[in-house]
Design a protein around this nucleic acid. Sequence first.
DNA 1: TGCGTTGTTTCACC
DNA 2: CGGTGAAACAACGC
Length: 308
Amino acid sequence: MPELPEVETARRLIERHLAGKTLIDIDNRLPKLLRDSPIADLSVLQRRTLLAVHRRAKVLTLEFDGDLSLLMHLKLAGQVAIFTADGSRYFAGHPVPKQDAEFPHKSTHIDFIFDDGTIFYLSDIRQFGWLRLMPSEDVEGAIAAFGFGPEGTLPATMLRPLEPRMMTRSIPIKTLLLDQKFVAGLGNIYVDEALFKAMLHPERPASSLTGPERRRLLEAIPWALGEGLKQGGAKIINSRAEPVDEFPAVHGRVGEPCFRCGTSIVKIRVGQRGTYYCPTCQKVRRKNAKRPPAATMVSGAEVGIRGK
DNA sequence: TGCGTTGTTTCACC
DNA sequence: CGGTGAAACAACGC
């Protein structure tokens, strides 16, 4: 669930509440979360001060003094919770554990305890997330190795270089947008939202988009990520959306009326991913549709399979 | 109880 | 060798 907006929300929270503070204790009850980590033990972070928190795509870097940096990926179900000494609680990422739950929760795997009593809890109900601890000087190379494309939050004009690459790919536009090497930060929620905003069918071959359609999409990407960020991340619980100000408009809303036209939102699978769209607002349209249609219309090619 | 869930990697294939 | 689609993988709730 954590995509760019959720991860950026987490970054801001951590930086706001913990930058300049010193770690006094780390309780890591699930050491395997440190995967492929050059330094395999978090305890070396004891007595280190958090200097800054960075984000590239969906990867966070917590930079400590003493040349140590902790890379963090929340994947499907990671949650960041910060409890300050005055009893306030701040959350980002996955909705479980619930905000009023007792902490540490059974899915809370690491407690980072800071010198002023602030506690940073890292929970992950699915345990798909990962951490990597390394010398700060190695971070740049480690991030570069992911080969991320441009940040999806960039203004559309700066995403223009994506256009030629879009034109040569035959895969569904949704699949291409999910490729972090193409554009960084979109996940399943915000891809569906960007395609709805641009009024494009998720299965359209990327190369079939017209110039105006490509430009519309490049506008919709930072727009969708921005909407999510405004809300501190979209609220999707058990695959069901709880829209705020009509966002999300399609993701997690199967069977519910489109906010724009009232048609029931449909769920299909695209590249093995649950995909939500409005069959009225996001019709398949053919580029070079010269050939006059035969007696029958475009037979059910675009008809979605209704989710259960 | 088997399926769905996500981001990412890996693999088979053309 | 590159593009593509499918499978694998991590683990758990429903």
